[in-house]
Amino acid sequence: MSTLGYGWKQGLKNIWQNRLFSLAAIGTIATCLFMFGLFYVLISNFRNMVYSAESNVGLTVFFKEGISERQIAFIGEEIKACEDVEEVKYISAEEAWENFKKEMYAEDDEIEDTFGEDNPLANSASYEVYLKDVSNQNGIIHLIEKIEGVRKVNGSSVVANGLSRFNMLVTYVSVTVIVLLLLISVFLIHTAVATGIRVRSNEISIMKYIGATDMFVSLPFVVEGMVIGVIGATIPLVILRMLYERLIAFILSHFSVISRWLTFVPLTEEFRVLIPVSLLVGAGIGFVGSMVSVRKHIRRADA
């Protein structure tokens, strides 16, 4: 039997023989990776919602008086050519006045009597510009202001900066929490594998006396750690898979008032990232945790 085959078989046997330690290690990894998955899902959904909100934060570009339609079209093309621009929408003076009336005087019939056919916003045709990333809003404003024929650019920098800063804050907090969870997982699997190794320290020292290489001694423990890690990663994936759509359905049905702001990431998109990342992280912390423990014992057996 090859060394690899022996390591694999012995690793699985170790898991079964130390089933209590194995269960404890699987439990701790599953808990940590469930938290990791939960945070990931929360972050990705939050970012998705912030992104939709950002997409609705636009700039308004006004033109100089007496500008021709051809020049307006040219300005539109120039804006579209900017890298961070997502969408450009033309709002005529008539549309602007209609929108204004709807927003400001929705319940006031007298407005028609006051203004009649006059359009106080006659010179207020504009482009509404939506950005890919609102954090670049000021830069884009400067660029557009330089285009010939542009009179003024209105931005909502307070909203844009606020959203952008909040998004950054959420990202930092999330990354910190995820890194901490991963470190805790490595520590826990290291402790679990180390306990199992201590039980088998006699075996390690015998193997070293009969001329086993470090790889031969480590392999069963590394297989054990990685299998525990992968099982520990699979459990939270199954739980999250079962919870995700039910939770969204629950939120949308019970919080219908805010549901129009809640744009959730589809399940398939979420798990396209979560499955490989969780399995890799599970196997990775199993590998690192067991390697750290077994190396320490091998050195001790040599000394």
Binding site: S2, T3, S205, F216
Partner: peptide, 26 residues
């Protein structure tokens, strides 16, 4: 190497204990 306290692996049968030396050298 032979030790006073034998140092056999109690969870493996006699064949496996002896075979371990052979496995180590492939």
């Amino acid at each position: 190497v032979v030790f006073q306290e034998f140092r056999l692996l109690n969870d493996r049968n006699i064949f496996e204990n002896v075979a371990l030396s052979q496995r180590v050298i492939g």
